[in-house]
Write a protein that binds this DNA or RNA. Structure first.
Length: 427
RNA sequence: GGAGAGGUGGCAGAGUGGUUGAAUGCGGCGGUCUCGAAAACCGUUAGGCGGGUUACCCCCGUCUCGAGGGUUCGAAUCCCUCCCUCUCCGCCA
């Protein structure tokens, strides 16, 4: 959410930002609404001031026993109240409409973000490792997984529906190993680990920006709760409506959760394999930082996510998303893309964003810094995958496959698999 | 699921219809003291919105004591509905 005052005072900049995102939002309608709203507020408050004054006078008149005058004043106040009532409903409505509109405007892109309309205009900022060269035709995980008995697509469909998978044997164990490895590694690098609910209420999802605009992407329960699409939602909301101390910042959090996505708008994309499924595992990173340090914090977060890939020996590249490809809440986003032989290309495995004060304003997350400034200010929130576990499993299987159909286990994961060094087909 | 208690400022905790946005304590900030610090003492310290001014400070008004509605000239204080927390009982793990 942007501040109404900011939109009002920086209309041209906001217009440019919306254009850069190719996002349609009725800024002229908003400005008109905002003007009406302020006019109504002025009218109501003037009347309220008169009412308060008169009521105070009534108290005094009653004390001094001047009943007749008091009764006359009461009539006056009743009249004012009628007037207030007439305007107030319009004010309330204008307020609600204003908030509604503000909830649907995306964040302002950071000045350093390249302008562009879609992912083809994202800019690569660095590359690490070398994609493996195979002396044989490498298999895609949708063949390799079932052959090894570690991914079962048919049974995923049987148990739930299409785009759900079942993992067996080393598929299940490797998933658990990856989760532990990622959490342990981030923990050693200063992140505090959490365990959070997999369901969230509407207020929580509104605070991080999934609602009200993107309800179709979420699974909803009969209780009005939603399955979380990412742990970002819960980790960020941990501090909703709180005032943090500047001396405690930055706060670096991590959590493993399952993630659930309806993927309503993605029919036909990545239909093969387990790249895009309704339920997947993810280890998430979230930071709360001061405005002055949040961009540095974003760099650090991306480095932490990349560190996992480096440890796993998986080639990747990091791109900065252009304005047209960025998410709703983000001011700047790095996507980290791992090399996948099946795609013969890099594929997103982590997305790290600085949401600046966009979520903090919705969520009421502020910080205080006595001596530096009075009162409190909104913090900056950041989130990133560290990493998407399912896609990491895929990357390991595909990149570490050998000519005999077996898969080597990356060094760092072996302690988590009881020393196992390879995965072989089960006959 | 049943019964009871409660939701107040950064935190703790007073306050049952009239200058109460709100005592007191803690914490924070400023000051006195000190070489410096601690202690002590003095002062100060909620947020949203609108307007004036707009770089900042500041000033005025208004709303906010879980949420929404009602009673009243006037509500943190009375009434209703909802949400949440706690305690006990039941049930389940």
């Amino acid at each position: 959410m942007l501040d109404a005052k900011f939109v009002r005072d920086n209309a041209d900049e906001v217009r440019a930002a919306l254009a850069a995102r190719d996002y349609s939002w009725d800024i002229d309608g908003f400005l008109a609404l905002d003007a009406t709203r302020r006019e109504l507020i002025g009218a109501v408050e003037t009347l309220q001031a008169r009412r308060n004054e008169a009521s105070k006078a009534i108290g005094a008149l009653m004390k001094s026993g001047e009943r007749d005058q008091a009764e006359a004043a009461k009539d006056e106040v009743r009249r004012i109240n009628d007037e207030i009532g007439a305007i107030e409903s319009r004010t309330t409505e204008a307020d609600a409409q204003t908030r509604e509109m503000l909830l649907t405007i995306p964040n302002m892109p950071d000045a350093s973000v390249p302008c562009g309309s879609d992912e083809s205009e994202n800019v690569e900022v660095r590359r690490w490792g070398t994609p493996p060269e195979f002396a044989f035709e490498p298999k895609a995980h949708w063949d390799l997984g079932p052959e090894l008995g570690v991914i079962d697509f048919e049974r995923g469909v049987k148990l739930a529906k299409s785009r759900f998978v079942v993992l067996g044997r080393e598929g299940a164990r490797l998933t658990r190993a990856l989760i532990s490895f990622m959490l342990d590694t981030h923990g050693q690098r200063g992140y505090r680990e959490w365990w959070v609910p997999a369901l969230a209420n509407a207020e929580t999802l509104t605070a991080t920006g999934q609602l009200p605009k993107f309800e179709d992407d979420l699974f909803k329960t009969g209780e009005g709760l939603y399955l979380i699409p990412t742990a970002e939602v819960q980790l960020t909301n941990l501090h909703r409506d709180e005032v943090l101390e500047a001396s405690d910042l930055p706060l670096d959090y991590t959590a493993y959760t399952p993630c659930f996505r309806e993927e309503a708008g993605s029919a036909g994309r990545d239909t093969r394999g387990m790249i895009r499924v309704h339920q997947f595992d993810k280890v998430e990173l979230v930071k709360f930082a001061t405005p002055e340090t949040s961009m540095d914090a974003l760099e650090a977060m991306a480095a932490d996510a990349e560190h996992i890939l480096q440890q796993l020996g998986l080639a990747y590249r990091t791109v900065v998303l252009c304005t047209g490809d960025m998410g709703f809440a983000a001011a700047k986003t790095y996507d980290i893309e791992v090399w996948l032989p099946s795609y013969n290309d890099f594929k997103e495995i982590s997305s790290c964003s600085n949401c600046t004060d966009f979520q903090a304003r919705r969520a009421g997350i502020k910080y205080r810094s006595p001596g530096e400034f009075r009162g409190s200010r909104f913090v900056h929130t950041l989130n990133g995958s560290g990493l998407a576990v399912g896609r990491t499993l895929v990357a390991v299987l595909e990149n570490y496959q050998r000519t005999d159909g077996s898969v080597e286990v990356p060094e760092v994961l072996r302690p988590y698999l009881g020393g196992q060094t390879e995965i072989r087909p089960h006959v």
